[in-house]
Write a protein that binds this DNA or RNA. Structure first.
Lengths: 359, 359
DNA sequence: TGCCGTCACTAAATCGGTTTAGACGCGCTT
DNA sequence: AAGCGCGTCTAAACCGATTTAGTGACGGCA
């Protein structure tokens, strides 16, 4: 295998200096059109592309973004978010010929990983996802001088640029839709408390019940997992007054919940309405199809990558607010069962003020 | 933000030359123990780590592996394989402080992406996954001189090192288990034909039926998707003689199939047995729990990363064969319904030769 | 004719590491 | 006293790009 050509080879072949090749490549002014063409032709013939490490060293930028996943592997596995999100990132990076450096780690090694990332100069900046309560990362990357974009709400960002795609409206809409369908006992199976988005979903549920003057519904931990969703559902359905609707933190837990309902002979939506979140590929094909909410993970990735690019280039970038996830009613929700003490129709859509909940 | 320290800063602080710092860092012989300690202390105090781009340029290796996903984004989304696989890769790379560069692309841009990867020198080698029939990539990376490990069978590898984790035995076991349970009409919902693993799964099903002297079962495309799985199931159950068991190409299609069976009032496993593949986190929590097969994706990632490291270092590495995926019988399979023309017990386990199918 | 400004291009420094060849001091032989 | 070998350390080249300062040719103008 022949040694890969360098800029010197191109220069020699075109009969110019290395500087001229560089000028031609980055089409900067000051080269005769004919010379430029000759250089580019030579580069083409040799199949030359500038070496990334050399460019990185020279330019002082790596040409790559970092993404660290701190979720536990099996939590990641079931989540359709990351693949779509990284596809969105990639679509932006590929325009610039940049790359995405992915790391999967656990919470205990997380800190040293970011430190390495910063000291290494292997990436020019990082995207922070899955923000936790009291998340140390925004302050950490700030102190490391590592350009950062937070994927989530601005108030989680600790001064960094934030790219937000709100999941609250979908939860508000789901609870309202259930209330309008006559449900009065609406439960929530929440995700891990340490995640800010899980907490935000729980609060959206909580406050919407309040706003609608409905009694606070039962709450169970579901951990965003199938197992947690199944257990929580079992507990909820075993209550003296079981809920007539359950809003889950994600589709995985909701789908497991559906299975438990089937197993216990509880018809859905006849006796129980079910709502998930994520709109996994499976959601339309469960039985019955699962009401859920779709966030544009790909668009989120795109926006985040673009924002981080701006932060790296300009030192800062304005926050971005993407359209919130849309609630997708499907056949897993229906009117509250008559047997319950819900009074269908008692709450009229028009009487419900359309306020936007904020944290 | 202070400029990040360089090797020169460390050298100055320790009162030595830059070369000595390099020697100390890479603990090479020829430095007095005391000097080495002083240098390392200075590096520690300054929080210095060698710049990756500089090292890459100097050493001629990027210190990173490349992984290109050519699947369509929504196909990727539902697949638990990649997150676990990348976690496995990472666990190997992090030992060496190396990185994983991830690209998501579409089939039409795939070729130029690999070319860029090779010319760029951003990665030292690539892992090839999801091999297709007549896949151009093994030959492409070979011609580009890009160290390559194929994640799959050696005969797909076109001369590259292969890391294999066979899914055939799980399919053979599943079909046999069904046959032993008296099933005679065993259908298959296959994945996209262009994927070699999908084709291999189909053949395993086909040949096992043959070996057991069972009639060839009906076959439907499922595309590894929920939608395809649902449609295929609908078609199969509408046959004049519907199958009493369906073996799906993956859990996603199988789960959608379960939902269709419910919807049509076909009891599982009463009238239909169902088998998936992947053992997604949901599989244990469907209703009934889904028989499936578990491949150690994380271990696969580890082995692949290690093998690629060896290929990069030594120019070649022996193929690796990992333990095959294990068939996991669960409640979604049961005895063939008596109404069918299956004859439970007609086929005795002992009479079934335990041959291993090969392609 | 001499001076100046432009245009097209190049030499050399630079980024931050690694590595090779060699310098220097010291104690031992002979 | 000269020579040798060894242990320790450094100067300088090198990786492959970018960039700055500057060179040389040429045309216009006084």
């Amino acid at each position: 295998m022949a040694r890969r050509p360098t800029i010197a080879d191109v220069a020699q072949r075109a009969g110019v200096s290395r500087s001229s090749v560089s000028f031609a490549l980055n089409n900067r002014p000051g080269l005769a059109e004919e010379t430029r063409a000759r250089i580019l032709a030579a580069a083409e013939e040799l199949g030359w592309r500038p070496s990334r490490p050399a460019q990185a060293l020279s330019l002082g930028r790596a040409g790559a973004l970092g993404l660290v996943l701190t979720r536990e592997p099996d939590l990641i596995g079931a989540d359709p978010f990351y693949p779509a999100f990284t596809a969105g990132i990639e679509s932006v990076l590929s325009e610039r010929g940049d790359g995405l450096v992915l790391h999967v780690t656990s919470a205990d090694r997380e800190k040293s990983l970011y430190e390495r990332l910063a000291a290494d100069r292997r990436v020019d900046g990082v995207l922070l996802t899955d923000l936790r309560v009291d998340d140390p990362r925004p302050a950490l990357t700030a102190s490391l001088g590592l350009p950062t974009v937070v994927v989530g709400r601005a108030e989680w960002a600790g001064g960094h640029c934030a790219v937000e795609l709100d999941d609250e409206p979908a939860y508000v809409a789901a609870v309202r839709a259930l209330a309008e369908a006559g449900h009065r006992r609406i439960a929530h199976v929440e995700g891990p408390r340490e995640y800010r988005h899980a907490a935000r979903r729980r609060r959206a549920w909580e406050r919407t019940l309040e706003e609608l003057a409905l009694p606070p519904g039962p709450l169970r931990p579901g951990g965003f997992t199938a197992e947690g969703g199944a257990r929580a559902t079992r507990e909820l359905l075993a209550l003296d007054e079981p809920p007539t609707a359950i809003v889950y933190g994600n589709d995985l837990a909701a789908t497991a919940g559906l299975a438990v309902a089937h197993e216990l002979g509880v018809p859905v939506p006849g006796r129980l309405s079910v709502v998930g979140y994520d709109d996994t590929p499976l959601a339309q094909y469960t039985h019955p199809p699962l009401a859920s909410a779709r966030a544009d993970a790909r668009g989120w990735g795109e926006a985040a990558a673009r924002a981080l690019g701006a932060v790296i280039a300009d030192g800062a970038a304005p926050d971005v607010v993407l359209p919130p996830a849309a609630f997708l009613p499907r056949a897993s929700i229906g009117p509250a069962p008559a047997a319950g003490n819900a009074r269908p129709g008692a709450i009229r859509p028009a009487t419900v003020p359309d306020v936007h909940l904020s944290e």
